[in-house]
């Protein structure tokens, strides 16, 4: 007869997995459920259901403005980070450049420096150079944070690129700039799209840097933070649910893109 405990490690592993999923999804599910509650405070029982909170959120000018502001900052910092990150990655794989390991280490540093430290140092930096807090400062902060992720993704793709593709382009009459835009960049394409979406998510999500570098105009996380301080309401749940759904969709798409980049 089989020992009934033979499967114990396997069973416990499965149990831990399900427990983790529950732990991950339960708070999110509760938050979403509460956003449909037809009452003014967040607590069980839910009783009646409604979509009023969503209607209210969609008419909330503050919320819409904060969304727009966040998206604008994300777009600007993503563009800057992608350009910088690609350039640094090219530098790291280029022949005949010294200190490539150091460049790589420096490029990756912002990803590991704690957000708080990075935010404070950036704040000190901008006041030293007399830069006002606000949009430009936030974009600067988000760009610095996002560059390492672009570098790593671009680098992975560049290292898998056959070395003679650029040679072939040069051989067929392309100078190094044409070869970059017509061969290297399209080859990097999928990795860069993945990296850019990651940058967008990092920027939208960022609170600490924005808090230290921002002016009076709130980004989305700052607005939600301010509203939570005024007390929980299902309206905040509705806001958070919207943000969650949109970012999850974007994140999944990014994952799909990078997966495709790896298999192609």
């Amino acid at each position: 007869m089989r020992n009934m405990f033979a499967d114990a490690p396997r069973t416990s592993l499965t149990a831990i997995y399900w427990a983790f999923l529950l732990y991950l999804l339960l708070p999110l599910t509760l938050m979403m459920a509460m956003s449909f509650k037809d009452a003014n405070f967040v607590a069980f029982p839910i009783g009646d259901w409604t979509l009023d909170w969503y209607a209210k959120v969609m008419q909330d000018k503050q919320f819409l403005e904060a969304c727009l502001y966040s998206v604008m900052i994300a777009a600007a910092s993503t563009l800057a980070a992608t350009t910088l990150g690609t350039w640094i990655a090219m530098l790291i794989v280029a022949e005949g450049i010294k200190g490539q390991v150091i460049i790589f280490a420096l490029a990756c540093l912002p990803a590991v420096v704690p957000g708080m430290i990075s935010a404070i140092s950036l704040r000190i930096f901008i006041s030293t150079i007399d830069m006002p807090t606000g949009t430009a400062a936030i974009i600067l902060g988000h760009t610095v944070h996002a560059v390492p992720f672009v570098v790593v993704m671009a680098l992975t793709r560049l290292r898998s690129m056959p070395g003679n593709l650029v040679d072939a382009a040069r051989d067929l009459g392309a100078d190094s700039i044409v070869a970059f835009f017509r061969v290297t960049l399209p080859y990097l394409g999928p990795a860069l799209v993945g990296g850019m979406i990651f940058c967008v998510l990092l920027s939208i999500d960022d609170f600490v840097r924005t808090f230290f570098l921002g002016g009076y105009r709130p980004t989305l996380p700052m607005l939600i933070f301010a509203k939570v301080q005024g007390g929980m309401s299902p309206e905040i749940n509705a806001m958070a649910t919207l943000v969650l759904v949109v970012t999850a969709a974007v994140g999944l798409y990014a994952e799909y893109m990078t997966r495709r980049a790896r298999t192609r």
């Binding site: 593709l165 040069r170 392309a174 399209p186």
Partner: peptide, 30 residues
Amino acid sequence: VPPNKRNVNIVFQDYALFPHMSIAKNIAFG
């Protein structure tokens, strides 16, 4: 003279075809 200014072309060992371009686009590149 740099490679792009010489009137010679190479067939590379592993072909080095541009993976994101169609066959016709590859041939049309030069």
